[in-house]
Design a binder for these strands. Structure first.
Length: 426
DNA sequence: TCTGGGGTCCTAGGACCC
DNA sequence: TCTGGGGTCCTAGGACCC
């Protein structure tokens, strides 16, 4: 048996934890660059659509009818860690599936009342972290995810649904659209619809050989999982990353190569930090930039890549490479919206294959330098020590007008509690 | 007016092997 | 008259997820 624990309106819930004054009020969280809505509190779901642009909801915000926040990834990651650590009290097998979801293996717990156990998870996470969650329980991961969705949508279920307690699972599956199923996206949904497969029950009863032939092995597995045959096992140990990407839209359109280079140097620094956190080095490194897709004319996009020999995660090695790649990709006369760096062909640092034909590199000193910089930046503040190529006063930086605070990770942003004292009566 | 960021996996097809 | 069989590796592109 599997449980899927899903945080409700996760980013919006994180913001609300530290703003008790917003209890019961509509809250939405914006994408990077304050682009569009990516998370909504239950109250906000009534009045704004997912992906609504900030512009389209500005009136609501100005009238005080909707509270919006810029994306605060440091806060969300830390809150996510707290939720996962709480869940580890409920099973030795916890697989973090995404920033706001985790699967729990329930093998050892089948003699319990699992609905009751799910309720315990829910109240404990709420109490320890302030985050509301929904819990789905079933024989397979796919069914557990579906159960959590049903639990979330039906208030009378109180946040926990164990499919095995239902008298007739099929009756429930018969009224759920296949688009809700984990692994069935927009495209597959349309193709399956064309074959008359519309509700989850249709998919469960579809001919698996035909499904495999037409849609591949993954979709076949999805069908089997709907029948209660587990095809996606628990993966408690995260697989090593195969790529690292840093990409951002600029706060405003950029035309100068010098600005692009500052941005690319900054993204390269972030990317190298991630690699060092992972203990990985990259063999391939690429830089790309583009204009807006939403403009009809004067579009341009270009990418350049380089092989790193030996593979590295050294910021000081990567930045000069990135600068060359940026220069090579840049074409004057365009208004650039976004740049991106990608590190691929990753392998564990320390297990690097030497090159027979190039001089052996002693990276020990460089590794210490990077570790020192990382240590200082962790201890003091991000970019306390940084590379000159990143620029001192970036004009291209993304918009983040409604930023809250990094309440749980930065001493000077820690929440303040004001105690109200009644006036002394004379 | 503005429309995000960061990933993973599978498949088809070509090149090449014996 | 028809023209083998079985396989690996790589890449681009498409699909999915949150």
């Amino acid at each position: 048996m599997f449980a899927l624990v899903d945080c409700n309106s996760f980013f919006a819930s994180c913001e609300k934890v530290f703003r008790p004054d917003l209890e019961g009020q509509p809250v939405a969280v914006l994408s990077n660059n304050d682009g569009c809505v990516v998370a909504r509190s239950p109250e906000a779901k009534q009045i704004v659509k997912m992906q609504a642009t900030l512009f389209s909801i500005k009136d609501l915000v100005e009238r005080g009818e909707l509270h919006v926040f810029s994306s605060n990834p440091v806060l969300y990651k830390d809150m996510s860690r707290r939720v996962i650590e709480t869940l580890q009290h409920f099973s030795p097998e916890v697989e973090q599936y995404s920033i706001d979801e985790a699967f729990l293996g329930l093998q050892g717990f089948v003699n319990r009342d699992l609905t009751d156990y799910g309720q315990q998870m829910r109240t404990t996470v709420q109490q320890w972290t302030g985050i509301p969650v929904s819990v789905g329980i079933a024989k397979t991961k796919t069914l557990a995810k579906l159960a959590a969705q049903v639990a979330k949508r039906n208030p009378d279920i109180e946040g926990v649904l164990d499919f095995e307690t239902l008298e007739d699972i099929d009756a429930v599956l018969a009224v759920i659209d296949i688009g809700e199923v984990w692994g069935i996206g927009k495209n597959l949904r349309a193709k399956l619809n064309a074959l008359g497969i519309k509700q989850v029950l249709d998919l469960k009863q579809a001919n698996e050989k035909l499904i495999k032939k037409k849609f591949g092995i993954l979709t076949r597995r999805t069908v089997m999982e709907l029948r209660g045959v587990p095809c996606f096992p628990m993966e408690p140990v995260a697989a090593p990353k195969t790529m690292r990407i840093v990409s951002r839209s600029f706060g405003h359109l950029v035309t100068e190569l010098s600005d692009i280079k500052e941005a690319v140097a900054t993204y390269t620094t972030r990317c190298a930090e991630k690699l060092r956190d992972d203990g990985l080095v990259a063999r391939q490194f690429a830089v790309s930039m583009r204009t807006s897709y939403y403009r009809e004319q004067n579009q341009y996009a270009a990418a350049r890549s380089v092989e790193l020999d030996p593979p590295t995660n050294d910021t000081a090695v990567l930045i000069p490479m990135a600068m060359q790649l940026a220069e090579a990709a840049f074409k004057p006369g365009y208004e650039y919206l976004k740049a991106k760096v990608i590190a691929t062909e990753l392998s564990p640092a320390g297990a690097v294959q030497g090159n027979l034909f190039s001089a052996p590199v002693n990276t020990e000193k460089r590794d210490r330098l990077m570790a020192t910089i990382d240590g200082l930046n962790r201890k003091l503040q991000p970019d306390a020590v940084k590379f000159g190529a990143m620029g001192l006063n970036p004009s291209w930086q993304m918009r983040s007008e409604y930023f809250s605070q990094r309440y749980t990770t930065h001493w000077d942003e820690i929440p303040t509690v004001r105690i109200w004292q009644p006036k002394q009566s004379r």
